[in-house]
Design a binder for these strands. Structure first.
Length: 352
DNA sequence: AATTCGTTCAACCGCGACTGG
DNA sequence: ACCAGTCGCGGTTGAACGAAT
């Protein structure tokens, strides 16, 4: 015989609370408190509710110290930090945010923060950076699938896009590497890289990415992707892939900032580099749009993944990619500057 | 204007932890 | 040590609402 449920009383009201019920509950608790027994409370207060429901209503809604309104950026940041340390311990997290309930924080996490983290390629469970580099590492297979579908132009395009994206990632790594530039902790913080082991994942995957950029990775089982003249030339072929003096690491700081601007969202916040004083408009680590990041959910099956990716990145009409890896687009005449601009600029730098 | 779809959040449910007899 | 009652937590649900079609 199992334990009888708390709310097995017949005729006990459920659902949304009426204003009169709220009034009764508040008046009773103000007069008598709730320490003795939640179970007895509704009977004594003249409420047709179970004690559990009363407790929930009080702690999540009627308590006088509850803070109302949208969570501030500081509170958001604190939640993310605490969640990375504590996991789904909403009650513990809420003790660090006065006036916020565990339920509110849990809801806010599930409806806002989780999605924001996914958008910038951070796994909300592990708090590690995953998607971009995971997808890049699978790019050879995806390119093979593209080529097999007979769309080699788009495959080449993807390859070129991968080069551009790789260079941006390199730039980000450069930004975070003290030997090259003083660490920009503000930028790193905003990217969620300071507390995240993802930075090290990022660095560890360098060699694999290098191979991809140099065109040395076979794509598919029986095909080798032809090199892309001009684009692959951006990376000095004489530089050993293992060398720390990769030409990309010598991209000037301004170029780096330009790359970051390119990958940033047109939001209201700004990113200021404390070293150079350069301010990058529209940079918001938690507000980067899906349009400039990889899809948050990727099909499990390799075939589906490839098909989705190809359809998304190339589209049935190559000029209007509609889903998938939308951020990779070399021809963006409507924008202030494009990936092509960045590559052109980078090319100029490499030649000088 | 009507309908569908997506998002939000208050409230519920079930389970484990705690407590007192 | 055991047990029943109670509390608190975290996952889930569904009504309400706004946006899109």
């Amino acid at each position: 015989m199992g334990r009888s449920p708390c709310c097995d009383e017949i005729h006990v009201k459920k659902g949304p609370w009426a204003p009169e019920e709220d009034k009764k509950l508040v008046e009773y608790i103000q007069l008598h408190g709730h320490r003795r027994s939640w179970r007895e409370l509704p009977k004594n207060a003249g409420l047709n509710r179970c004690g559990k429901s009363c407790r929930l209503r009080w702690t999540n809604y009627l308590r006088p110290d509850i803070k109302r309104g949208k969570l501030s950026e500081e509170e958001e940041g604190l939640i993310v930090q605490l969640h990375s340390a504590l996991g789904n311990k909403w009650s513990k997290i809420s003790t660090h945010l006065p006036g916020r309930t565990d339920n509110e924080i849990k809801n806010y996490w599930n409806t806002h923060l989780r999605k924001k983290l996914l958008r910038v390629g951070i796994d909300p469970v592990t708090h590690q950076r995953t998607t971009d580099l995971d997808l890049l590492s699978r790019l050879p297979n995806l390119l093979a699938a593209t080529a097999k579908l007979g769309n080699l132009d788009n495959a080449l395009r993807l390859h070129a896009d991968a080069v551009a994206r790789y260079q941006m990632l390199k730039g980000l790594i450069t930004l975070m590497t003290p030997s090259v530039l003083p660490p920009n902790t503000d930028a790193m913080n905003r990217l969620g890289l300071l507390a995240s082991p993802g930075r090290y994942d990022l660095l560890q995957q360098n060699d694999q990415l290098e191979g991809l950029v140099n065109g040395s990775l076979a794509f598919g089982q029986d095909q080798m992707l032809p090199t892309t003249p001009g684009l692959l030339g951006l990376v000095n072929p004489n530089t050993p892939s293992s060398s720390h003096a990769s030409p990309v690491s010598r991209i000037p700081h301004e170029m780096m900032m330009m790359m970051m601007m390119k990958s940033s969202y047109d939001g209201s916040s700004t990113l200021t580099d404390s070293n150079s004083g350069i301010t990058t408009p529209g940079f918001s680590s938690l507000d980067m749009p899906a349009a400039h990041s990889t899809p948050s959910s990727v099909s499990v099956s390799p075939e589906n993944e490839a098909a989705d990716f190809v359809q998304g990145a190339c589209g049935t009409n190559a000029s209007t990619p509609s889903q998938g890896w939308q951020g990779l687009n070399l021809g963006e005449p409507d924008e202030d500057f494009s990936w092509k601009d960045i590559l052109d600029q980078t090319s100029w730098w490499e030649e000088s």
